[in-house]
Amino acid sequence: MSVLKIKDVSKIFANGTVRAVDNFSLDVADGELVCLLGPSGSGKSTLLRMVGGFERPTSGLMIINGEDITHVPPEKRPTGMVFQSHALWTHMNVFKNLAFGLKLRKVAPDEIKRRVEGVLDLVGLGGYGTRHVAQLSGGQQQRVALARSLVLEPKILLLDEPFASLDQHLRERLREEVRDIQQRLKITTLFVTHGQDEALSMADRIVVMRDGKTEQIDRPDIVYREPQTPFVAGFIGTMNLIEGTVSNGIFSKAGYSTPLPVSDGPAILAVRPEALDLTVANDNAQGKVHRVTDYGTHGLVDLELLDSTRVKAMVSHPDLFRAGQGVRLAPKAIAAYRDNAVIHRA
């Protein structure tokens, strides 16, 4: 049973012809955490704001629990949004920030107190009710923003890059906390981010977006291992994308060739650095080492094919390689794309 259903939604902003969101559809199941992942301008934030009711779709339908909410204003939707800039009301203290929505719902004062304190405990801010927003650290402010949404027990929690303004360390801690809380409350969540780490570590499913369209919707491990398009392949993790041609079952690009059992024509060969073995070769070299970086646990070799196409390879013994050396490439796992779709995977 899907809690949220987005059907053929498009958004064209009044001033231009740009389709910020282009014929987008998605079903989110009860208790699921779905990440909208994409570069800036991919339409993911616009989509989230449409679910929250802050933008109106140009066309399409939004359905929550079987109810068409496409044209329902934000204050009447069962959604709760956590903003990137936390958007806490600085003229109220923490308690009042949380209580505002409950007061609007005419909840009894002692019930408000009980629920606010409960949620503050949940986000680890028990006893912070009387604090002023300005007295809190960035991480605490974001926790209050989360609590402000949770206290109203929304059907769907919307998170718009909630950790973008925090430092790396805090970001990692908060995303674990949010994931814990989300799983404990089993609250359906839509999460927007441009950070692949965040998406991979938190999501039940990832929606990769580009130019307002869906590129791929899958579980994180599948998105990583089996990207459906060259864009997804390049966006998630590090991926060597080599554009070349296939003839008679052989893919070739500037002196490098490898068997590829597909029909003749152009193709993009995708190889992860960790799936690319290198051997030193003085004769018949396919590429030349450009730089070797030693990370301690492993090494990274930057190399150039004969036409200067850059390729990265992860090696376990970086001391075997030095700049200027000739190498041969032996990919262990490859994928090939043509016309924006997978044509081969091995």
Binding site: G52, G53, F54, P73, P74, E75, K76, T79, G80, M81, F83, Q84, S85, A87, L88, W89, T90, H91, F100, G101, L104, R105, A145, R148, S149, L152
Partner: peptide, 25 residues
């Protein structure tokens, strides 16, 4: 603007947002 949107989000109508958020700010 996000502050006002957050108030809409928790259930305040446009006039209530002006009165409780915009004006005090």
């Amino acid at each position: 603007r996000r502050m006002e949107e957050a108030a809409r989000d928790v259930g305040a109508g446009p006039f209530r947002v002006f009165w409780s958020i915009t004006l005090p700010q």
